[in-house]
């Protein structure tokens, strides 16, 4: 027996109006990363050699580490991040993003790493400049991801991957100013591929495991108005690239 379309629409309307409640945080998944798998990442050219200095560059979590307990001077990274363009030591742009959004490395989602990597490549390889901060703020905003809890209207903060970086939309139709970025939605199992990565000279924030349950206002900040005109020649160049 099929439900009447009007009844379905009414139910949907009711569900959409329900306030979203937050439940307990989504737990960490045990890591599947082993020394061997990390070595494979290195062989793929995605990690640096393990022993560049007296301290190991990367370490597989111990078997009894059900959630991250990185040694002092190490943080938590994911295999996917490195497949999507993260490298160490981190660029100043990557460091600026952590500082601006007030996040630790594990807070980035895999797609956030991809959009940042693509943006850096567009700036350097095509616009011939270092990643441009005002252009970044003009095009992108931060959004907080909460995982479904299994109960309608209830979502859970996540320990890893809570920061999504999305193209700004609205009246100005900013996506038309940038290149098409259609991201994959298939990241199955990414959050069980974490490991410890040396935080060279503390260039990125130390791991504290803090949980972000509300989106800070500044994640949506744009460019300072007085800086906006400076973007015009760059946006013009982007338009040319888009048409090329």
């Amino acid at each position: 027996m099929h439900a009447h379309p009007r009844a379905v629409a009414k139910l949907l309307s009711f569900l959409l109006k329900m306030p979203v409640r937050l439940n307990a945080a989504d737990d960490w998944r045990p890591s599947l990363m082993t020394e061997r798998r990390l070595l494979e990442l290195k062989m793929e050219g995605l990690l640096r050699p393990r022993t560049l200095s007296s301290r190991l560059e990367w370490i597989a979590p111990a078997v009894d580490h059900r959630e991250p307990r990185p040694p002092r001077g190490y943080m938590v990274s994911f295999a996917k991040f490195h497949r999507h363009g993260l490298g160490f030591p981190p660029s100043r742009f990557m460091r600026a993003l952590c500082h601006h959004y007030g996040v630790e490395l594990q807070h980035f989602s895999p797609n956030a790493i991809t959009v940042v990597a693509v943006f850096a490549a567009v700036c350097e390889g095509y616009l011939r400049m270092m990643p441009h901060w005002d252009l970044w703020l003009h095009l992108y905003r931060g959004e907080l991801f909460h995982a479904p809890s299994g109960t309608t209207g209830v979502r859970k903060p996540v320990q890893a991957g809570c920061l999504n970086l999305v193209l700004k939309t609205g009246k100005s139709e900013k996506p038309r100013e940038y290149i098409p970025v259609g991201l994959t939605s298939n990241h199955a199992g990414w959050n069980s591929q974490w490991f410890y990565l040396r935080n060279n000279d503390d260039l990125l924030p130390a791991y504290t495991g803090c949980l972000i349950s509300e989106r800070p206002d500044h994640w949506r900040y744009g460019v300072v108005q007085t800086h906006q005109p400076r973007l015009d020649p760059i946006l013009d160049a982007l338009r040319k690239l888009r048409r090329a």
């Binding site: 050219g45 995605l46 490195h82 363009g85 993260l86 490298g87 160490f88 030591p89 981190p90 660029s91 100043r92 742009f93 990557m94 790493i113 991809t114 959009v115 940042v116 990597a117 693509v118 850096a120 490549a121 567009v122 350097e124 390889g125 095509y126 011939r128 400049m129 270092m130 290149i179 098409p180 970025v181 259609g182 991201l183 690239l241 888009r242 090329a244």
Partner: peptide, 26 residues
């Protein structure tokens, strides 16, 4: 120009865009 083409150029060159490098990509 699409993000896919940009990423393919990055992997083709064997670089990681978010790593500190002595040279800009260009």
């Amino acid at each position: 120009m699409t993000a896919a083409l940009v990423l393919s150029a990055v992997h083709h060159r064997r670089i990681l865009p978010l790593m500190s490098r002595p040279l800009r990509m260009d």
